[in-house]
Each structure stands twice: as structure tokens, then as C-alpha cells.
């Protein structure tokens, strides 16, 4: 089988803080094949965004990539210098941020901000770049694209801005798009439009996508495979369908149970008890044990390794769940 487009191997991203060393990403491995959408799921503080920034080499001190490999197209890009990395960013790998209200620069027209990517990564002349920008804006569903090029971000609504951000991300023909909570800041009605748009764009361009979100419902609609993160570690991964239907890790199960369903309105919404523990004081054992209904003495002694459970599912749990939802 061909090598995956992106292959994360035992990625470690650490932050040196006054309170101690924070292992925000602690030995994370997963891969993304060309044309595939992989969902990265977990609660806030689970290290999801840090993985995105690590891939692009945008982790700022006091953070640093402490170990592991980020293989993109066969080479480890975590070891590249700043200059080489700049050619990867925006050209090979693009990123879409959570909040469209703040990810566009308020003092430049969107035409100029789009053009910047093409100026950096292509040899097109000005007229050709302009045509490509207009076409891209039309592709993401912005009407009157030509006149909108000269508009400033504050003249767009949130949903429209996120369309512009997506257009910028797709502009240089990147093969991997990292979308960090791309719809969290948007209205629900706009959310599904944006998600559909992103899926269609990915399908049309053949790019792969990492969809970072806390929302399993979004993932179940969008992703081919799911990686569930907890306290900087992968706790479960597998095909979306299997993860949603029969999760093996109690944490995944908890996340699924906390999605409201219209069919069982008499039941109180279930939640995962407790909060995410302080990542600096985890110690030995499973980091989810404090919130887990199935925890046994073994869970406090030994940290579970990620291992195949059934079908496509890998889970890091001593006592994987068996039932189907």
C-alpha cells in the first residue's frame, strides 16, 4: 500500500511552564491518506489544536516539539528549518482557524490577503492571480466575487469570512487542509453550509483534511476516520462508522452520550463526570480513570497501550467496551 500523505509517529509537543512540564501532545500517532478526512476529537485542552500547530511548525516557545516524526509525503517535516517550512505552509499544508472574525487581517482587503498566498507560492502574474482569486471566491459561494475582492473583512458576516478563510486555504492547491474547529464560532445554520462546502472542496481537489473539533456530531457527518484524544494521548481511533456505533473506550462513549438526540427527550442528557485532570500531575496509570465508571485497580497502576480491539478500532483501555450503541 502506498505511503499515507501524512504520518504522525509518536509526536511529542511539550510546553515548559512555571507549574512544570506540560505534555500537551504525548506520543500521538495517526495517519492521513490522500483524499481522506480524519476527525480529531476531544475536549478543550486535549491537545487537538497543538497537533495542528505542530504539523505546521507553528508551536511558539515555551512550547517545542520534543520528539517523534511528522512525515509528510515521505519526509519528516518536523526537522525542517524555518525557510523550508515556509514553503510547506500555505502551499503543501494549509490551515483554517476557529474564529473567522479574527483570522483575517482587518486592515487589508480580502483580495490582497488572498493574493498574498499566490504571490508566495506560485509564479503567476498579477492578472492570472486575480482570476484565480475570483474563481476561488465563486467556488466557496461568494456572489459578486470580483467586486468583493476590494472589500475589507469587517464588511463580511462571520459565515462569509469563514468562506474567505477556506478560499485562502484552498487557493494554492494544498494537499492537506488542517481545519481547527472551523464551524464552532458560527451560527448553526451556517455551520452545515460551511461543512458541506469543505467536504465538497476536499472531494473536488483531492486534498486530505484533518478536522479538529470537540463535536462528534460534526465528525460523524464529515470524517472517514476518527482519532479521539484525551490528555494529549490517542485513546481511540478507527473508521468513523465503527467508532460511532460501538466505541471501545469509555471516554468516546461518554462523548457520544453527551450529544443530545431528538428521539429520547425524556432522558436527562448524560455527561462525563468530573473535568479534564491537570495534565502536569497525571502520574502512572490511565489518565481517564478518575472519570471512568469502569475503572479497576489495574487502571491506576499501568497506563494502557493503544491496541487493536476489533475491526478497525484501536483503543487505549484495559477493559474496552463491547456493546453496540
Amino acid at each position: 500500500m502506498a505511503e499515507p500523505l501524512l504520518d504522525l509517529r509518536e509526536l511529542q509537543t511539550h510546553f515548559q511552564t512555571f507549574g512544570g512540564l506540560v505534555k500537551a501532545v504525548d506520543g500521538v500517532s495517526f495517519n492521513v491518506k490522500a483524499g481522506e478526512i480524519v476527525g480529531l476529537v476531544g475536549e478543550s485542552g486535549g491537545g487537538k489544536s497543538v497537533i495542528g500547530f505542530s504539523i505546521l511548525g507553528l508551536v511558539d516557545p515555551p512550547g517545542r516539539i520534543a520528539g517523534g516524526e511528522i512525515r509528510f509525503d515521505g519526509r519528516d517535516i518536523s526537522k525542517l528549518g524555518e525557510r523550508e517550512m515556509r514553503n510547506v505552509r500555505g502551499r503543501d499544508i494549509a490551515m483554517v482557524f476557529q474564529d473567522p472574525m479574527t483570522s483575517l487581517n482587518p486592515v487589508y482587503t480580502i483580495g490582497r490577503q488572498m493574493d498574498e498566498v499566490l504571490r508566495l507560492h506560485t509564479n503567476l502574474d498579477e492578472a492570472a492571480r486575480r482570476i484565480r482569486c475570483i474563481r476561488m471566491l465563486e467556488d466557496v459561494g461568494i456572489s459578486g466575487a470580483e467586486s468583493r475582492l476590494d472589500a475589507y473583512p469587517h464588511q463580511f458576516s462571520g459565515g462569509m469570512r469563514q468562506r474567505v478563510v477556506i478560499a485562502i486555504a484552498l487557493l494554492a492547491g494544498s494537499r492537506l487542509i488542517i481545519a481547527d474547529e472551523p464551524t464552532t464560532a458560527l451560527d448553526v445554520t451556517v455551520q452545515s453550509q460551511i461543512l458541506k462546502l469543505m467536504r465538497r472542496q476536499v472531494q473536488e481537489t483531492g486534498a486530505a483534511m484533518i478536522l479538529i473539533t470537540h463535536d462528534l456530531a460534526v465528525v460523524s457527518e464529515m470524517a472517514d476516520r476518527v482519532v479521539v484524544l484525551y490528555c494529549g494521548k490517542v485513546v481511540e481511533r478507527g473508521l468513523t462508522e465503527e467508532v460511532i456505533r460501538s466505541p471501545a473506550h469509555p471516554y468516546t462513549r461518554g462523548l457520544l452520550d453527551s450529544i443530545p438526540r431528538i428521539t429520547d427527550r425524556q432522558r436527562r442528557l448524560r455527561q462525563i463526570p468530573g473535568t479534564v485532570p491537570d495534565i502536569r500531575t497525571l502520574g502512572a496509570g490511565c489518565s481517564f480513570r478518575g472519570r471512568c465508571a469502569h475503572a479497576q485497580p489495574l487502571c491506576a497502576e499501568r497506563s494502557p497501550e493503544l491496541a487493536p480491539v476489533r475491526g478497525s478500532l484501536d483503543a487505549a483501555c484495559h477493559f474496552p467496551l463491547q456493546e453496540t450503541l
Binding site: 505552509r89 500555505g90 498566498v117 508566495l120
Partner: peptide, 21 residues
């Protein structure tokens, strides 16, 4: 600000990010 990170994610050079963005 986020737009600085976004500019970095586009692959812009450090000088350009500092002075233009």
C-alpha cells in the same frame, strides 16, 4: 492575534508578518 498566526500559516516571511501584518 489570530490573523498573525493565519499569516504565518500562509507561509509569509517573518519580516513581512512583522511589518506588513
Amino acid at each position: 492575534q489570530d490573523y498573525i498566526r493565519f499569516a504565518r500559516a500562509k507561509g509569509a516571511s517573518r519580516t513581512h508578518i512583522l511589518f506588513a501584518h
